[in-house]
Amino acid sequence: MSKNFQARVITNSALNSKIYLLEIAPLEETTVPSPGQFYMIQPDSSFDPLLKRPFSYLRKKANRIQFLYAIRGKGTGLMKNFPQGKIINMTGPFGNGYPVHNDNRIPLLIAGGTGIASILSLYCELNKKYLIYGAKTRDELVLIDEIEKSGGEFFICTNDCSYGKKGMVDELLRDFISSHQDIISSVVIYACGPKPMLKSISKIASENNIKGFASLEENMACGFGACLGCAVKTKKGYQRVCKEGTVFPFAEIVW
């Protein structure tokens, strides 16, 4: 069940010049989120900015929730100044989360930029797994230690070659497909990142008969299905990213 609740800021620290890690403790009991779900966070209680902002949770610990956010505009610009102890307004958790299959399919997770938050919420809960993670520069890659510790096999790239392989995650995906032909028919992809990246991955997946799911983003006003503002075109007509999504099968999305 989703809730409208207040939370206390436990830590809010910069991981690099653009990306922050926020840890909060809800002041009341809230529902435990499942991987891929998100919360709406109010950057400020004045009316400018007005709306809450959507953020995927990164990790959940006993009555603590962590988020990873990039500074983009007005809202996140205010969030970076949240002092420790501040009480903030939130709602959530929302969204359908990643469908986790209890069969012997092998999960391949793909993250671009801050899509890593949503992807790590799932990655940490899986056993046998692969991860492809890309960012523009080394500075924008975060939580590499965490990824190393959690045991799967991972491949990293940066657009400017400052870390890992040079290039984009879709090139790494092509490499993965050719080097893992023995298992590729059992692989299922879960992806989160910028729309052009998701589109490209979904195309490669379909060319190779690989099933997969993408977590989409759209501007949101409510987060819980009431405003119809977050609609995206799908083969079933317009669907709400916040409610029927955020996770859709590749085959359902009209890019």
Binding site: F47, E218, N219, A221
Partner: peptide, 30 residues
């Protein structure tokens, strides 16, 4: 939510954006 005789599909995204102390919507009466 407003009801029409026949179902309405609504407008393509983006349908909403924030403006100072407000928001714009063009849901298209979905």
């Amino acid at each position: 939510k407003g009801i029409s005789l026949k179902p309405m599909e609504g407008n393509p995204p983006p349908r909403i954006c924030e403006t100072p102390c407000g928001m714009l919507n063009a849901i298209g009466l979905q």
